[in-house]
Amino acid sequence: MIGAASLLLALGLGGTAVPVADFDIPYFLANPKVHEETLRRCHNDARLAATPECQNAERAGTRRIGRPLSPRTKQKKPATPPPVPSPKGPERGT
């Protein structure tokens, strides 16, 4: 015999499938290239913006705020400025 709680639970679900995203928030945080590409696709198509995958990508972007950005290329050391020549002539103070 089926309990009342089980019956109500089965009727409440009604066989509807809950959409699940292929990628979760930690995946996007660990894979910035996939994250950027997903956000690009989501921002270019309004229908995709409502999908769980796009929502996870947006949330991952929100969590990334305040974290330092990873360098895309090797950063060069700033060039040292040329030495300032010493004044010549009467400004020298001799």
Rank of each mutant, 00 (worst) to 15 (best):
Ile2His: 14
Ile2Met: 14
Leu7Thr: 05
Leu8Trp: 09
Leu8Glu: 14
Ala10Met: 08
Gly14Phe: 01
Gly15Cys: 04
Gly15Asn: 00
Gly15Asp: 06
Gly15Met: 05
Thr16Met: 09
Ala17Tyr: 06
Val18Asp: 11
Val18Ser: 09
Val20Lys: 15
Asp22Leu: 02
Phe23Arg: 07
Asp24Gln: 07
Pro26Asp: 07
Tyr27Thr: 04
Tyr27Trp: 11
Tyr27Phe: 14
Tyr27Met: 08
Leu29Met: 14
Ala30Ile: 02
Asn31Cys: 05
His35Lys: 01
Thr38Arg: 00
Thr38Trp: 00
Thr38Ile: 01
Thr38Met: 05
Leu39Ala: 06
Arg40Ile: 00
Arg40Met: 09
His43Ile: 04
Asp45Arg: 11
Asp45Trp: 02
Asp45Ile: 00
Asp45Val: 01
Ala46Leu: 04
Ala49Ser: 10
Pro52Gln: 10
Glu53Ile: 01
Glu53Cys: 06
Cys54Asp: 04
Gln55His: 08
Ala57Leu: 02
Ala57Arg: 00
Ala57Pro: 03
Glu58Lys: 06
Arg59Pro: 07
Arg59Ile: 02
Arg59Val: 06
Arg59Ala: 09
Ala60Glu: 00
Gly61Cys: 07
Thr62Tyr: 11
Arg63Met: 10
Arg63His: 05
Arg63Ala: 06
Arg63Asn: 03
Arg63Ile: 03
Arg64Thr: 01
Arg64Ile: 02
Arg64Phe: 11
Gly66Lys: 06
Gly66Arg: 05
Leu69Glu: 13
Pro71Phe: 13
Arg72Phe: 06
Thr73Lys: 05
Thr73Gly: 04
Lys74Asn: 08
Gln75Met: 10
Lys77Ser: 13
Lys77Val: 08
Lys77Thr: 13
Pro78Leu: 05
Ala79Cys: 02
Ala79Arg: 10
Thr80Ser: 11
Thr80Lys: 13
Thr80Ile: 08
Pro83Glu: 09
Val84Ser: 14
Val84Leu: 15
Pro85Ala: 14
Ser86Gly: 13
Ser86Pro: 06
Pro90Gly: 03
Pro90Ser: 15
Gly93Leu: 12
Thr94Glu: 15
Thr94Asn: 15
